[in-house]
Nucleic acid binder design. Structure first.
Lengths: 138, 138
DNA sequence: TTCGTTGCAAACATTTTGCAGTTTC
DNA sequence: GAAACTGCAAAATGTTTGCAACGAA
């Protein structure tokens, strides 16, 4: 027997929270967001469920940004842009040119490819605008 | 005045260590590797220099894998394959099809693009072979 | 002599875990 | 009723930092 999976309100709420946003949340964000409606929610439960969802392939990790792991409830193929200044994560369309890359790498190197992530880093528009304002102020 | 930079033996040794390997080291790896030849090296110094090198653009981060940040002293354009089973990081050639993507994204979204990383995840050949052996053993 | 660099250890921040109580099936 | 799930708090982990000593220029 593998391990039965049972329903839980908290779990459902956590998954809903992740799926209903585009901010690519952290555990802390989920916790703070659900606190008002679920006052007895524990941060440990959030972590346990995030791990659970990721292992189940229900969410994916965007990686650790500024010391905190960010998640994404949108499983459709797309890329990410991460602002090095404010840490925000934005979605980008995935270049069609990457189509078939998984299989090519798999065959060529004899490895099993499970996922393929394209991530751009830089400074987002907002932060660039803030910089411009700061410059004017001087 | 910006902040003068002075030479230091430890710093040189740390950079050499990173540049002379393909394992995509962590702070701990650098520390353990240099310990024999630099018995008085401190882990804090390794962290401080890794941060320094990254800020100077002398090395780049491969991301946090298994809780530890991995670095890469090879700045030439290439992609990475990360084994989800053993955590190893392998280099892959970077698809030429990504050429010019930085600028296209930059212009289209009004952002500043500093870097662009393509990362594949899955199970490496070694771990696949180990699996096969384990299956036979049963 | 100045001030960047280091060792050391304490401090930090995020994440994991043990256990007793609660909920689901 | 068995076993999964949770809250709570302690523990574990990787990383950062303050300070006095050291070393480069």
């Amino acid at each position: 027997m593998e391990h039965a999976i049972r329903y839980s309100k908290k779990r459902e709420a956590i998954l809903d929270a992740i799926r209903s946003t585009h901010v690519h949340p952290t555990a802390e964000w989920v916790y703070q967001t659900l606190k008002p409606t679920h006052p007895d929610l524990s941060l440990g439960t959030v972590y346990r469920n995030l791990t659970f969802f990721r292992e189940q392939g229900m969410i994916r990790s965007v990686g650790v940004i500024g010391g905190q792991e960010h998640f994404d409830g949108d499983l459709s193929p797309h890329s990410h842009f991460i602002c090095l200044e404010c840490g925000a994560v934005y979605d980008l369309p995935r270049p069609e040119t990457l189509e078939g890359l998984d299989q090519r790498v798999s065959e060529h190197y004899g490895v099993q490819v499970d996922s393929c992530d394209l991530t751009l880093r830089g400074v987002c528009r907002k932060c660039l605008e803030n910089r411009a304002e700061d410059d004017q102020a001087v």
